[in-house]
Design a protein around this nucleic acid. Structure first.
Length: 472
RNA sequence: GGCGGGUUGGCGGAGAGGUUACGCAGCGGAUUGCAAAUCCGUGUAGACCGGUUCGAUUCCGGUACCCGCCUCCA
């Protein structure tokens, strides 16, 4: 059996992966807060852990891997959007507006991530469905002296957990010295964080031993992972930005609530995404969503290919150039594998690359070698393991019409032009042939001639059907 | 201020203490009416300064610069 090696943030080393139970390999990844469309940065962890999920399924069997990724549907931003709609005159209750916002965002998320070729996790729990478990966990923490109630808030007593800061390599004293912690009068210690906070009448809340309120963000993941995967499980993933404080706090909560268990054995973090060398942010004006790219005609598999061409632990830079190169390479593979049936099992080289700490760029290099060697069945199988799909590429005169022509109105025009072109070439009237080809070029269609005399089309980015009129 | 990541040829991007990464672009050739595509061949590197070593881009130390997290935005 293939041995997977993963970089464990907990030990800062690449380690061999040995699941607690090979019959049920368990992975939890922090999912989105569902208040708006997922931006490109959100897609990176989705794709990184999708590759890991596919690898685990390959190695241990699809039915022996449990993948949980949550939806955070309790959040100020969701409330704010609902309140905005209410203020704009929507007569429905705030609760209904919140539910609507949550539902539509989840549907968007599914559609966008599906387009990137990401498999849906086996379970996608919503925080609001696990409030009872959160309350129970908080009660347990209070009983053990790890948490305390103050003014309707319940806070985690950070000083009560010896190993706090171990994951992110910080000491509590250093962090306080940094003087960037929130100072709240009800905290025993500046580092203590919220497990439960009071809610107002106009915002969602749940009854609890501490009054009407709602859970803190960190307790959601601790409660859901415990409920669905148990007190000890194998892999916990997420972006490096979540390492502190979110994951640190999860560990503190879970380790204190279930001191007999190990919580997550392997912590895997992906690096951040940049755009043209800069962090993606609204203020820099380089902020865009996955849907924006898809709407611009960037295929999901191209986004996926670009993402996988950089190792997950390195900052990934999204650029126009990479996107174009990825598209060219995928089209090339599509042509190479036309009518090819994928090999039953993926090539060892590709599996080995992924098993070595998810070296996706190395896996792509191996795919290129397979293409070079003409091992197309294996190439296709490797492409599938990476979760990539290939663009539809039609070649030849007849098939090309289907995607070249925007509406039947241009078909007679093009057929006639091609007929005249072929005739001109047969008569060796190259001036006329080049004139017709030039008109196609201006319309954004590249024509080329094969040895057997057939004509091949390629639609370019600047394709403009209106300019086909010039073919007359 | 604290913690972490990075700096490789024109561009992107890997691995390995000594042997071609790879892709794109470039150059030369084959092929082509001319092209495109394809095929063959080929040049260019390791931020800077020291150290270890027979030998370092690869290990160690330092310097510079870039980026991220620590703060709602991933």
């Amino acid at each position: 059996m293939t041995t997977i090696r993963l970089r464990n943030s907990k030990t800062r080393k690449v380690e061999e992966f040995h699941p607690i139970d090979p019959e049920n390999v368990r992975m939890y990844v922090c999912g989105p807060t569902v208040y708006d469309r997922a931006h490109l940065g959100n897609a990176r962890p989705v794709l990184v852990f999708d590759v890991l999920y596919r690898l685990l399924r390959h190695v241990y069997g699809a039915e022996h891997v449990t993948y949980v990724r949550n939806f955070t549907d309790v959040d100020d931003k969701i409330n704010a959007e609902a309140q905005r709609r209410k203020a704009a005159g929507d007569p429905r209750s705030l609760e209904a507006l919140i539910a609507e916002r949550t539902e539509e965002t989840i549907a968007w998320y599914h559609a966008d991530m599906d387009a990137l070729g990401a498999l849906r996790p086996g379970q996608e729990p919503r925080a609001t469905a696990f409030i009872g478990q959160m309350i129970a966990m908080i009660e347990g923490l209070i009983a053990k002296g790890h948490a305390y109630e103050k003014e309707g808030h319940v806070l985690f007593r950070v000083r009560s957990y010896q190993d706090y800061g171990a994951l992110s390599g910080r000491s509590v004293d250093d962090m306080i010295a940094g003087a960037r912690v929130e100072v709240a009068p009800f905290k025993e210690d500046p580092m203590d964080f919220v497990l439960w906070k009071p809610s107002s009448d106009d915002l969602p809340g749940w009854d609890s031993p501490w009054g009407l309120g709602r859970p803190g963000w960190h307790i959601e993941c601790s409660a859901m992972s415990h409920e669905l995967l148990g007190a000890s499980f194998d892999i916990h993933g997420g972006g490096i930005d979540l390492q502190f404080p979110h994951h640190e706090n999860e560990i503190a909560q879970s380790a204190c609530a279930h001191p007999e268990a190990g919580f997550a054995n392997y912590w895997v973090h992906n690096e951040m995404l940049q755009v043209e060398g800069k962090k993606m942010s609204k203020s820099l004006g380089n902020f865009f969503t996955v849907r924006d790219l898809l709407d611009q005609g960037v295929p999901g598999e191209v986004i996926r290919f670009v993402m996988l061409s950089t190792h997950y632990r390195k900052p990934m830079d999204w650029t126009e150039k990479k996107r174009n190169e990825a598209q060219d390479e995928l089209e090339k593979w599509a042509l190479l594998t036309t009518d090819v049936v994928a090999a039953v099992s993926p090539p060892d080289e590709v599996v080995a690359a992924l098993a070595d700490d998810l070296k996706t760029s190395e896996a792509i290099t191996q795919l290129r070698k397979l293409a070079k060697q003409g091992r197309m069945a294996e190439l296709l199988s490797g492409i599938k393991l990476l979760g990539l799909s290939l663009p539809e590429v039609d070649e030849g005169t007849r098939d090309a019409f289907d995607w070249l022509v925007e509406g039947e109105m241009h078909r007679p025009l093009i057929e006639d032009a091609v007929r005249r072109l072929v005739e001109a070439r047969n008569r060796k009237n190259y001036a006329e042939a080049d004139r017709i080809r030039g008109a196609f070029t201006l319309a954004g269609v590249t024509l080329s001639f094969d040895k057997d005399g057939s004509v091949t089309f390629k639609r370019e980015q600047n394709f403009d059907p209106a300019k086909l009129e010039a073919l007359k």
